[in-house]
Design a protein around this nucleic acid. Structure first.
Lengths: 195, 195
DNA sequence: GTCAAATGGTGAACGACGTTCACTTTTGGA
DNA sequence: TCCAAAAGTGAACGTCGTTCACCATTTGAC
C-alpha cells in the first residue's frame, strides 16, 4: 500500500471515527448505530467494517480519543500548579470539569462494558496508568515518605474516590448536588484524603 | 380481578422476574434476552409483556430487588455496631462485600442506563435516600454539630467516594487491588473523610 | 347452568440492528 | 496496457425487542 491508497484509507477511518464521536457526543452510547454513522461519514456499512472489526472496536477508538483529551487537560492542570496540594486539587477539579464539558463522552468511557471475552484495550490500561501518574507525582510531592506499592495504592484510592463523586453526580437516582457544592465537596474530599 | 386470576398473575410476574434475576446473575446485563427469559420462566414472549411494558421495566424490577437486598445488608451492618465510626466503617465494608457477593447484580444496578426520556424510578430514588440515611445517622452520631443541608451533602460525598473505590475495582482497565488491600484502603478513606 | 366480558396466555410477524460477503470500482506497479 | 490488490458497496442473514390478532380460562350477573 502506498501514497494515495494509504491516504484514502486513513481519511476514511478518520471520517468514520469523527462520525462516531459526533453520534456519541449528541446521543451517547445509545446513539451508536453503524448505518447512521456510515451515512454521516459518507460511506457504506461495509466500509466501516473495513476499518473497525465491530462496534466495540469503534467505541474503543472513541474512548481512546476521550482518554487522550482528558490526559491533555490533566497535564495542563498539573503544570499550572507548583504546590503539591494545589496540584492535587487542580487535578480533581479538572477531572470533574472535563466530565461536565464532555458528559456524553465521559459517560461512554465509563459506561461501555465490552464483552467478557473481549480483550482489555492495552492503550486504555496505559491511559489509566498515565492519569494515575499525575496524581502519583503530585501526591509524592506532598508525602515524600510514601513510595512504591504504598504510593500506588493510595493514588488509586484517591483517584477512585474522586471518580465516585463525579460519577454519582450523573446518576439520576441520586439526588444530585449543584456545581458549586460539588466542587467544594471535591475539594474537601481531596484535602482530607491526602492530609 | 379476584382470587384465582390475581394469584396466577402474581405467580407469572414472580417467575418472569426470577428468570430475569437468574439471567443477570449468570451473564450480567448482556444476558438479558426476552426470549430466553420467557422460556426459562415457562411462558411465552407475550406473557412477559403483559407484566412488564418493556425490557427496561424488567431490569428496573431486578434492580429494585437488588436495592432491597443491599438495604437489608446495610441495615444489619448499621445495627451490629454502636460506635458511630465503627458503624460508618461497617457500612462501607458491607457495601463493598455486597458488591463482591453480587457482582453481576451490582454492576447491573449501576450499569443499566435507561433512555433519557424514561422517568427515573421513584422507588430507586427512595432506595438511595434510605441507603444514605444509614450513613447520615451514623455520621451525625460522630459529628452532632453537622445538620441539615451540610449533613446531607457530606453524606453524599462520603457515600460517593466509597462507591467510587468499589466501582473502579470492577473496571478492567484499572489495574485493580486485592480484596484485603481494597478493604484496608476503604477503611483509610472512611477514617479520613469523617475524621 | 348460561353467556358475555375480562383477563391470561400464545407465537407469528415486523422493523431495526450488527454483521457478512460476493460483488464492483479504483489504484499501483510491471 | 493489464491485472493483482485494495477500497468501496449494499443486499441478505440472524437476532433482538416489540406488537397484535388470536385462543383459553376465569369471572360475575342473570
Amino acid at each position: 500500500m502506498s501514497g494515495l491508497q494509504q491516504a484514502k484509507s486513513e481519511e476514511t477511518r478518520r471520517k468514520v471515527l469523527e462520525a462516531a464521536c459526533e453520534a456519541i457526543e449528541t446521543g451517547g452510547l445509545a446513539a451508536v448505530n453503524i448505518r447512521n454513522i456510515a451515512k454521516e461519514a459518507g460511506y457504506s456499512i461495509g466500509s466501516v467494517y473495513k476499518h473497525f472489526k465491530d462496534v466495540d472496536e469503534l467505541i474503543i477508538a472513541v474512548n481512546t480519543l476521550t482518554f487522550s483529551k482528558m490526559k491533555d487537560r490533566m497535564a495542563e492542570a498539573f503544570e499550572a500548579e507548583d504546590d503539591p496540594l494545589d496540584r492535587l486539587q487542580a487535578l480533581a477539579r479538572t477531572y470533574y470539569r472535563f466530565s461536565r464539558e464532555n458528559t456524553k463522552l465521559w459517560l461512554t468511557l465509563f459506561g461501555h462494558r465490552l464483552p467478557e471475552d473481549y480483550p482489555t484495550p492495552e492503550e486504555h490500561v496505559q491511559a489509566n496508568v498515565d492519569l494515575l501518574s499525575f496524581v502519583g507525582r503530585a501526591l509524592q510531592g506532598l508525602h515524600p515518605e510514601l513510595e512504591g506499592e504504598e504510593l500506588t495504592v493510595r493514588v488509586k484510592t484517591c483517584f477512585a474516590a474522586v471518580h465516585g463523586i463525579v460519577a454519582l453526580s450523573y446518576e439520576r437516582r441520586f439526588v444530585s448536588l449543584s456545581d458549586e457544592v460539588l466542587e467544594r465537596e471535591l475539594e474537601f474530599a481531596v484535602a482530607r484524603l491526602v492530609a
